[in-house]
Every structure is written in structure tokens, then in C-alpha cells.
């Protein structure tokens, strides 16, 4: 009846081949998937003054902040190389990249700990409280 029977396999063997790229989260939607000259145009133009990172993209000023993955967490980029033709079939994804921190960019505003992406980093710690085993006593 539904596609809930199909699963998506996460191939862990791929981790050893995964690259460790620089990862940036941008404050705009770029309607494109695929290769991009990131180091030519972007990372090379990043200014880091007294830990205030700035750059521009398409003529707009961005301000950035590096964030680390929460403790005991790893950044993974999952890639699906072949899409099955029906939603009844099982799928497979591999780990194409691994990262431990990334830089997020705000449009014009200075990053703060109020930014949703930073606040969201508190989730794993809280998830542990909600989902960890309770005392048996």
C-alpha cells in the first residue's frame, strides 16, 4: 500500500574514502546542484579579521562564523548515486564527505548565538536526555 516497506541503506564502508571538504552554509538559495568554483571565487575572498569573517556573494555582504559539530557527533554528507525508479525499491546512500565544523554565513548581520543554526546545535545534548535510558531503580 505504501512505500514504507522500502528502506535506504547507509553504506558505511564508504567512510574511508570520504573526503574532508570545507563546508559553508549560505543565507540564500542557489538553484543549482553540482560543481562550483568555490575556492576560486569564494574561500579565496574570505576576510578574517579578529575572528570576524566576511565575504560577498553575488554582490551581497555576508558575515560568517565557524561552528563545530557537537561533541561525539560527526558531519556527514550522504550521496545517493543511483535513484531507484519506483518508491517500492530499496535505496542506497554512501558517505561522500566527512566534516567536523562548518562556516555559516548571515546576510549582512553579525552572527550571534541567537542564530537558529547555532541554537539547533543544542539538540543532540537534549536528545540524549529525552532518549537516554532512565534509572532502573
Amino acid at each position: 500500500m505504501s512505500s514504507n516497506g522500502s528502506v535506504t541503506l547507509l553504506q558505511l564502508g564508504s567512510v574511508v574514502q570520504a573526503d574532508k571538504p570545507q563546508v559553508h552554509l549560505l543565507p540564500c538559495e542557489i538553484e543549482q546542484d553540482g560543481p562550483a568554483e568555490v575556492s576560486r571565487y569564494f574561500t579565496s575572498a574570505v576576510k578574517d579579521r579578529k575572528h570576524e569573517m566576511s565575504v560577498s556573494f553575488r554582490g551581497r555582504g555576508l558575515k560568517g562564523q565557524e561552528v563545530s559539530c557537537p561533541q561525539a557527533y560527526t558531519g556527514l554528507v550522504l550521496k545517493e548515486d543511483h535513484k531507484p525508479t519506483t518508491d517500492q525499491e530499496d535505496r542506497t546512500v554512501r558517505v561522500s564527505s566527512v566534516f567536523h565544523h562548518f562556516t555559516y554565513w548571515n546576510l549582512e548581520t553579525q552572527p550571534t548565538s541567537d542564530d537558529a543554526v547555532v541554537m539547533a546545535m543544542a539538540w543532540p545534548e537534549l536528545a540524549e536526555a529525552i532518549h537516554g535510558s532512565v534509572d532502573d531503580r
Binding site: 571538504p21 570545507q22 552554509l25 549560505l26 542557489i30 546542484d33 569564494f42 543532540p124 537516554g132
Partner: peptide
């Protein structure tokens, strides 16, 4: 309105998934 740069690639989908126990 978010997208990713991962290495020398761009990814339109700017979501960040959390996989937590």
C-alpha cells in the same frame, strides 16, 4: 533560503539533518 557549499560543489538543499539516538 539556504544552500551549501561542500568542497568544490554547491548543494541547493540547505537543510542540515540531525541523526540522534
Amino acid at each position: 533560503y539556504h544552500s551549501w557549499f561542500v568542497g568544490q560543489t554547491v548543494q541547493r538543499d540547505g537543510r542540515l539533518l540531525y541523526i540522534t539516538p
